[in-house]
Design a protein around this nucleic acid. Structure first.
Lengths: 111, 111
DNA sequence: CTCTATACGTAGACTATCTAGGTATGGAGT
DNA sequence: ACTCCATACCTAGATAGTCTACGTATAGAG
């Protein structure tokens, strides 16, 4: 699948997953992978920068957690602003996909 | 609506409109505007470069048409390759939106 | 001892969008 | 006449978000 499609929706997905439960980068990628039906394999090079800029924009908060096996995880949780932005982005997504359906929905034969 | 959402779908929309009938830039933008329910207002700075690169990639052919009132229009038509790519992109879009629905489809309360 | 999974991160390349500007014609309103 | 808007094309440069590829480190399996 063309990775460019994810542009603009990655943040919504992150916000959405975090709205259900706090999570950390690695787990978040797995959650999205499974929930998307193996369709979205979030790359570290997009995921981590996204988390960082979202924190800069105050959509997320983070805290470190040490596991028993001496691994460290950086958990993220939604801020009130993050919750607000999620709502906005979900609405935008609905509008967007309706727009696409409107254009593609015309009857014709592809080939 | 966040313009980043359009990334990766603009070419599909262009191909789709042209699959029904040849068209030119200005008209194409209007067609998409109306078909999308006023949601997608394609900007010249994205539309024309997109048409040019799609022609470079042999997805489109173009020909000039002079109207009675001395205006010139650059019509575009799909090549066989363009038709093929449209099919691919429509499939990708289906997979993509299923992926999104899979992630968003979880039951929870936004706020 | 190596390989995989877990877990974080960044640098640089690439690409596609946008804003803002340019050229030109025709018609409507003042 | 003059201005403004619609029609119709175009490009330069800014911006931004994705990717690949790399680096660090721990734990467990074979």
């Amino acid at each position: 699948m063309d990775p460019k499609l994810l542009t603009g929706t990655l943040e919504m997905l992150i916000l959405d997953v975090l709205a259900r439960a706090d999570s950390y980068g690695y787990e978040l990628a797995q959650t999205v992978l499974i929930a998307s039906g193996e369709r979205f394999d979030l790359k570290e090079g997009s995921l981590y920068p996204a988390l960082h800029r979202m924190q800069r924009r105050k959509l997320l908060r983070s805290y470190w957690v040490n596991t028993q096996d001496r691994r460290r995880r950086k958990y993220y949780s939604l801020t009130p602003k993050g919750r607000q932005v999620l709502k906005t982005k979900r609405n935008e997504w609905t509008q967007f996909s309706r727009g696409i359906q409107g254009v593609l929905g015309q009857t014709y034969v592809v080939a």
